[in-house]
Design a protein around this nucleic acid. Structure first.
Lengths: 342, 342
DNA sequence: CTGAAAGCGCTAACAG
DNA sequence: CTGTTAGCGCTTTCAG
């Protein structure tokens, strides 16, 4: 590792001048600049970032904490975030909190010293304690992504949950469905609440009742979901002609459950889910879904983070960004009601 | 941020003693230690890692570069690696080279200053230039994972490709299949070569010929794969009763192709693939596959990396670790030959 | 415009 | 055992 001191010697100038050339902050004579640049080339100089960080207290690095990197949704967000970071010459560190709120807190602490800002997809469904929220506030700026924690007032970027859900339900309505059931994950999650709200709004706009029998509040647990589907599909009449799932995991499990109960899609029930379950068209039949703008979410979140970093120690003007989702129509919603006896 | 100097003042000792208490390297009197510990507690001191790094030239951080974080295989490896890193109090930085060899090289350069060692899943199928190999050798130790680059002599950790392929083919043999075709990705990749070798070995052990008509050398391109499948399945007799795919992507495409040609699995052809295509049992029918020990690979790779870091600048004794894969029998290989007319 | 010098926070000798 | 000291490599005053 060559140092600026060595450069200075070779270029015949002082270390300060070398630094000025490199940072470009101060004006330097053309002659000196050329000599230094030449020395840099010859010695293959690369600045020591650690030393620079120690001095400047900046790291040119961002961090992102996700609950589970093995869930396809998160890598896609990471992609967008990394791209945005790179555009600004920043580095992105990825951490996986393994769905543990405690670990997430640890990681926030670890990142604190290494990054200038943090993207957080929180693992905690629960509220943040005031103590923990304060600890966050003391560190580098945080932007919350996807999951919106309660008790933490940071900038946020996520999908327009209710609008997206509405989009999916409207699609089913446009196909003639009127008995549209919805299956949700845990309603303790804000996202789930909002998606349910979107369902309700769409139904209401179509002047349809939203009987409690159509609203299946489930969870992320397969057995639980199965029980809910069973109750909803078998013991009920009129049976729903369509099912909307508010998240990918619940939707996936519901789908399995549905098959096991002898239903098919789009054969006997139309099906639309929030989130792509699995790579687009490898699944048979291909599932109609609400696709989140994952890349855009990650990218935008980093932009918001940079904005926040720029006005340090200024808690003013918290932004809560909502990005629109897209409806991707595939096979599972192709149940033709007109052709069926009612 | 409180500093050791402030601790020293509060504890009424010198900065050096504070450092000694913290690092635990030198013996310190019980009285002094208690005072310092107390000061740490009161001031909520956290050591400045940047400063420490500048001094010690160590970062307590490892890096991993993967070609595409959105491919499920890599996050699983990352999981294992992170766990192993954490066990030793290390931090893991994840980078995505977006399948670009050039970007990968850039990233190696960026990591160089920030980590003590690197796990690399190279994106390059091609050989490494001597120049680039030399650049690697100059930086922190690198352990290559999964893909084995040509022209780079580092420690390596990956699955036992040929053994794993052999396992899959033997499974088909044990079910009575004799006409077993194999479809591969690009044979420029070492892994693919070795997997094909495993196929050959299994067939040979069963005293079966490996006609060139059974060996379908394809790629990662869907159209290409489709053409190869078409040629193999339609124009040929006797038709193979089983197909073994040497990687997940090629297998997935082959499967689609197979369906589009009117074949089903296990209905008309048994199918086994290397790698899980997609989350285990969401796929219908569930696919029998060779599952790589992803977590173990990541974990082991970090262990090997630590070993290497321990004996710095000692290129001796390069280890090439091969971990065994597992056969997971599901539906797609359940074609019962005995029940069919031959 | 340039050189000298201070110091970011920490560690690691080295005397006392 | 403890205090003093000298840097790690860089940025940033501040005189000249």
């Amino acid at each position: 590792m060559t140092t600026q001191k060595e450069l200075a010697k070779l270029a015949g100038v002082s270390a300060g001048t070398v630094s000025n050339v490199i940072s470009g902050s101060t004006r330097v004579s053309e002659a000196a600049r050329r000599k230094v640049l030449e020395a840099i080339r010859v010695l293959k100089y690369q600045p020591n970032l650690i030393a620079r960080s120690l001095k400047t207290n900046r790291t040119n690095t961002l961090g992102i904490i996700v609950p589970d990197i093995t869930i396809p949704f998160f890598p896609k967000i990471i992609r967008g975030a990394e791209a945005a970071a790179r555009e600004r010459g920043y580095f992105l560190i990825v951490l996986d909190s393994q769905r543990s709120h405690d670990l997430e807190i640890d990681m926030l602490g670890l990142l604190r010293q290494r990054v200038d800002g943090i993207l957080l997809v929180t693992a905690g469904e629960s509220k943040w304690s005031a103590e923990r929220a304060a600890a966050i506030a003391a560190g580098p700026p945080v932007v919350c992504v996807d999951r919106l924690p309660v008790g933490l007032d940071t900038d946020t970027v996520c999908v327009d949950d209710s609008g997206a859900a509405e989009l999916g339900v409207k699609h089913l309505l446009s196909l003639g469905h009127r008995q549209i059931a919805v299956i949700t994950g845990p309603l303790t999650l804000r996202n789930e609440q909002e998606r349910l709200r979107g369902y309700r709004r769409a139904m209401k706009a179509a002047r349809l009742p939203t009987d409690s029998s159509l609203i299946w509040s489930a969870s992320f647990d397969a057995d639980d979901i199965h029980a809910v589907c069973q109750r909803g599909l078998l013991r009920q009449k009129p049976k729903p002609t369509a099912l909307f799932a508010t998240n990918g995991l619940t939707g996936m499990c519901a789908l399995k459950s549905l098959y096991s109960l002898g239903f098919t899609t789009p054969g006997s029930i139309a099906f639309v889910t929030f989130d792509e379950l699995i790579e687009e068209d490898f699944f048979q039949p291909r599932i109609t879904s609400i696709v989140q703008p994952t890349y855009a979410i990650g990218h935008k979140a980093v932009e918001v983070l940079f904005d926040r970093i720029a006005r340090v120690d200024n808690t003013e003007g918290i932004s809560s960004i909502r990005l629109p989702a897209t409806l991707v129509v595939r096979d599972s919603s192709r149940l033709q009601l007109a052709a069926r006896p009612r």
